[in-house]
Design a protein around this nucleic acid. Structure first.
Lengths: 149, 149
DNA sequence: TGGGAACCAATGTTGCGACATATAATGTAT
DNA sequence: ATACATTATATGTCGCAACATTGGTTCCCA
């Protein structure tokens, strides 16, 4: 669907304003679909992302600092996201013995199992981009990289 | 900067996953810059967007329903965003005489003045996309439209 | 070795998105 | 006219982003 119809705006000042709005709008559209897919599993997207990072470290622990570094959103409150995951017993928290400022965070077996169950969701959603050819998808990434130069 | 370096991920499963992440990441990057530009003026992006819609209607009033229709984010809480604007005396709220369920919302002179002061901000930010040529920006929009088909 | 800087996580606050529910006013059908 | 559905907005709850601050812990060096 064309952007003009999605949002209620007739015209754009220029192609840059239009592209800007389109990036933001499309990102929201993608994230909303993905969040809806995870919702039945009781996971939000930030929680899912943290679990993925923890699985990547497993069986080694991660610290809050490491989570922040690895997360898309650097300014997010990793500590409180871990709170939620801990309440659901998907992760454990334990003061790091070698540095008592830090906290070792580990994914539990239940957490790993939940990731197994949701294995296909994220990939399946990325396939929503299959209306693009491989070449177009690569081109899109290049254009986006260029924006942030 | 290349996406691989921005987020701490070596490889992507395929070009679709990479494009997906890139759209989301770039949108966040754009929105963050824009929000930072408005912050000194005491406006958040949702508040700014509501003010713009109200200016578009001015001197006619808008209702909450109309705001929701026009906003990028359909599920946002327009009512509470209007609360904040009203507290700052940038808008007025008045029960609609002809339909007492509805509420007439109008931008004040102070609101109009604030929009004048911030006139150049949004456009200036869209120009952050000027590392793209006109053609590339148009191409980007086309690719994004295609994703949502 | 004592004291300040640097570090790590947690917590407090504000504003928003998502979603459910409440409340009031209006429309409609009998 | 009364009952019921519909409409318009407001409110409550939860989770998150953004940002500031706090409280311990460790580091470092004078």
């Amino acid at each position: 669907m064309k952007l003009e119809d999605e949002i209620q705006q007739r015209a754009f000042k220029n192609v840059y304003q239009k592209a800007h709005l389109n990036v933001v709008f499309t990102a929201g559209w993608l994230q909303q679909r993905l969040a809806a897919a995870f919702k039945p599993h009781g996971l939000t997207l930030p929680q899912y992302n943290v679990l993925r990072i923890l699985r990547g470290q497993h069986p080694k622990p991660a610290t809050v600092n490491l989570l922040i570094e690895r997360m898309l959103d650097k300014t997010s409150n990793a500590s409180r996201i871990v709170d939620k995951l801990e309440a659901k017993q998907l992760v454990t928290r334990q003061i790091c013995p070698s540095n008592r400022r830090a906290v070792d965070i580990r994914i539990t077996e239940a957490g790993l199992e939940l990731l197994r169950q949701t294995e296909s969701l994220a990939d399946g959603q990325s396939q929503g981009l299959h209306n693009l050819t491989d070449e177009e998808a690569a081109q899109l990434s290049d254009l986006l990289d260029k924006i942030r130069d």
